[in-house]
């Protein structure tokens, strides 16, 4: 989903940067507040950022015969809410833009908007909606991560279609074209990301019950049960 350096027209680059900036600024505030209020959460914050680091470095073959990578933003969004994930996602994208020439500074705003803003919010929204309708935790986690991943690539497709409409078929044709490259490729990868996020959440449920309860992922009753075991 990394739009390469210089590959968005200036106006588009500026517009996406302006759109993404408030989310990141708000995220930095939320992150500082979280760390100040719960210094012990720093470790799990680091782990959530690390999950994004690992997943977005893995380019995995897909059914379309091309390769793409998951985003890893669903986990952090479910644990710490999307604003904090906006910061962790931005750090990952910045690392890739500066060291790997993957993505870029001029396209950072657009990439942040898809991977660190829309992805986490869409994933978190899905997760909350499913939880509220009584869906089991791990099923909700799976779909939360799945949606976070897939929606990111849908946004990238829209961003590119807006910037480069098809000469003949216009915006719709371009959407089909970029959607075919990004969104379709991404479906199996989003399934993988969902499964990996469930795996990490299962490990967290074993090792960090108290922390999950404080973050509201597990009900408080589970935590007292866990506290006896801990």
């Amino acid at each position: 989903m990394h739009i390469a350096e210089g590959f968005l027209p200036r106006e588009h680059a500026v517009a996406w940067t302006l759109a993404a900036a408030p989310f990141v600024v708000h995220g930095v505030r939320a992150l500082t507040r979280e760390v100040r209020a719960n210094p012990e959460s720093t470790l799990l914050l680091g782990a959530s950022g690390a999950f994004t680091f690992v997943l977005s470095a893995l380019k995995i073959p897909s059914v379309t015969g091309s390769c793409s990578h998951p985003t890893g933003t669903g986990l952090g969004a479910i644990l710490f809410r999307p604003p904090i994930m906006a910061v962790l996602g931005t750090i990952t994208l910045l690392f890739q833009a500066l060291l790997l020439a993957h993505g870029g500074l001029t396209t950072l705003g657009a990439n942040v908007f898809s991977m660190a803003v829309v992805g986490p919010w869409a994933g978190y929204g899905t997760y909350r909606l499913l939880r509220r309708s009584g869906v089991p935790l791990m099923v909700a986690v799976f779909f939360g991560a799945f949606v976070a991943d897939l929606s990111t690539y849908c946004v990238t497709s829209v961003q590119l279609a807006l910037a480069f409409p098809d000469p003949a078929s216009g915006l719709t044709g371009a959407l089909v074209k970029f959607g075919g490259i990004f969104a379709v490729t991404q479906v199996p990868l989003a399934v993988s990301e969902g499964l990996l996020t469930v795996l990490v959440m299962r490990l967290l449920r074993q090792s960090s019950k108290g922390e999950l309860a404080r973050l509201g992922v597990l009900p408080a009753a589970d935590a007292t049960k866990g506290a006896v075991v801990r």
């Binding site: 739009i3 793409s68 870029g104 480069f164 000469p167 074209k177 490259i181």
Partner: peptide, 22 residues
């Protein structure tokens, strides 16, 4: 190949005159 690289090719098809400016 990477989907990101394919997108660059698709951009070149849709806008042959486009030059990355950075």
């Amino acid at each position: 190949a990477g989907a990101d690289a394919q997108a660059e090719t698709a951009i070149a098809e849709n806008a042959p005159d486009y030059e990355p400016w950075f």
